Computed example of a mutant assay.
Amino acid sequence: MEYTTLGDTGLEVSRFCLGCMNFGSDREWMIGNRERSEEIIDRAIELGINFLDTANVYSHGESENIVGDAIEKHDREELVVATKVYGEMGEGPNKQGLSRKHILDQIEGSLERLGTDYVDLYQIHRWDETTPVEETLDALDHLVETGKVRYIGASTMASWQFTKALYESDVNDYARFTCMQPQYNLVDRQEEENVLPVCADQGVGVIPWSPLGGGFLTGKYSRDDDPEEGRAATDEHTRNRFTEENWAVLDEVEALAEEKGVTPAQVSLAWLLHRDVVDAPIVGPRSLDHLEENVAALDVALTDEEVERLEAPKDPVWSRAIADT
Rank of each mutant, 00 (worst) to 15 (best):
E2N: 13
T5M: 06
Q123S: 06
Q266L: 06
E168Y: 03
Q123R: 12
D105Q: 08
I322H: 03
L212D: 03
W29P: 00
M157E: 02
A248R: 15
W271M: 07
Q266R: 06
C179T: 11
Q266G: 12
G87D: 14
L121G: 01
T54A: 14
S99N: 02
E28L: 10
E228K: 15
G284H: 13
Q202R: 15
I49Q: 00
N185F: 08
K73T: 08
G213R: 11
A323W: 04
N294D: 11
R231P: 00
I282T: 11
Y221I: 12
G87K: 14
L250E: 00
V187E: 03
G115M: 13
G109H: 13
R126E: 02
E62C: 13
D324Q: 09
L137R: 03
L298G: 08
P208I: 12
E72P: 09
N22E: 10
A248W: 10
H125C: 04
D42P: 11
D8K: 10
V198A: 11
R113G: 08
V262P: 08
W160T: 01
N172Y: 07
D188F: 04
D276H: 08
T136C: 05
V133P: 03
D276T: 12
V317H: 09
D226I: 12
K164E: 07
H74K: 12
L79S: 11
N240K: 08
Y174A: 02
E311T: 05
L114M: 07
K73E: 10
G284M: 13
G24F: 11
G147F: 03
R223E: 13
P208N: 07
Q106W: 02
T4D: 05
D53G: 15
L104V: 06
R309D: 01
E28C: 07
K314H: 04
R241P: 00
G115N: 04
E293K: 14
S155G: 05
E252L: 10
E88I: 15
A158I: 03
P208V: 14
R126H: 05
E191G: 03
S59C: 07
L291A: 09
L143P: 09
E308G: 10
A44S: 06
V283S: 10
H74R: 14
K260E: 00
K73V: 08
G215L: 10
C20Q: 04
A296V: 06
D276I: 14
V267G: 14
R43T: 00
Q181L: 13
